[in-house]
């Protein structure tokens, strides 16, 4: 646990089983919250390497990330959340990480839940784990009515198609095992629309996923991708279409290196 040095991340080992772990945070103009999140990560999981994927920020996100001891991969222009996530996962795959954790840079996902989210991967019971914001009844009230109904609809659809119960299928708080990285770095990963459809693809690819309760915070700054009245409605339609498309395509398969 101790003897950690920022200059030699390759020597770092996580507390659990000597695995190399990387926390990936896609960030678009998160200078206000990123510093605090990195500080929290330093306290709660100092053994994890941290990577900021800068998605074309126009503020001081990069400087804040570097000052907080994170590595920075900077996309030349804004390319969207899915593209940023994929970039981070390609980084994890190429640099030999055993475990990747996706975490929002806006402070929504509490780093104290990282051990819970990574546990199923470390224990070998799942390859992809979603942190679920509806862990207890108190948090179930979070989010607008439309958002909650949307989650419910999508999780029902997913249950019908995969037989798995996932109550928060659009959670961006995830742990991904090396065993599942091939899928994310391949063309199968729907960069333009990573959502419930990804879980269906994982199911079809034979990658085991599960969800665990995690601590979420309400956003303090910035804008949610899913706010408003019209957007949630369009969102359901788009998500449904994306799921249909997955069913129309052949099952994702592990290929030799692209």
């Amino acid at each position: 646990m101790n003897g950690r040095s920022e200059q030699n991340p390759a020597a770092l080992r996580t507390a659990s089983g000597g695995l190399r772990a990387l926390i990936i945070m896609p960030a678009l103009n998160e200078e206000k919250t990123l510093g605090a999140v990195l500080d929290r990560l330093q306290e709660t999981c100092p053994d994890f390497d941290r990577l900021i994927v800068n998605d074309g920020s126009t503020d001081r996100t990069i400087e804040v990330a570097r000052a907080g001891g994170a590595r920075v991969v900077s996309l030349p222009f804004n390319s969207g959340y899915g593209c940023a996530v994929k970039t981070g996962l390609i980084y994890a795959e190429r640099n030999g990480y055993d475990l990747a954790v996706l975490l929002d840079a806006d402070g929504q996902h509490d780093p104290s839940s990282i051990p819970d989210v990574t546990r199923p991967v470390l224990e070998g019971t799942a390859d992809v784990v979603l942190g679920n914001r509806y862990g207890d009844a108190a948090r179930r009230a979070q989010g607008s009515w439309l958002q909650r109904t949307g989650h419910k609809y999508l999780s029902t659809l997913l249950r019908l198609l995969t037989g798995k119960r996932v109550s928060d299928p659009m959670s961006g708080f995830q742990a991904i095992s090396r065993r599942a990285l091939w899928f994310y770095v391949s063309n199968n990963f729907p960069e333009d629309y990573p959502d419930t459809n990804v879980l269906l693809m994982l199911h079809r690819a034979g990658i085991r996923f599960t969800e665990v309760p995690a601590v979420f915070h309400a956003r303090t700054t910035g804008q949610s991708m899913h706010g408003g009245l019209l957007r949630p409605l369009l969102y359901w339609i788009r998500a449904t279409l994306a799921i249909l498309m997955v069913l129309l395509r052949p099952k994702p398969r592990k290929e030799s290196k692209p």
């Binding site: 994927v53 590595r71 920075v72 991969v73 900077s74 996309l75 030349p76 222009f77 390319s79 593209c83 994929k86 970039t87 390609i90 980084y91 190429r94 960069e191």
Partner: peptide
């Protein structure tokens, strides 16, 4: 798709 692949590779190479 091609532009996204290129920007990803550029970002990773830069790092």
């Amino acid at each position: 798709t091609q532009i996204h692949r290129l920007s990803q590779e550029l970002a990773l190479l830069n790092e």
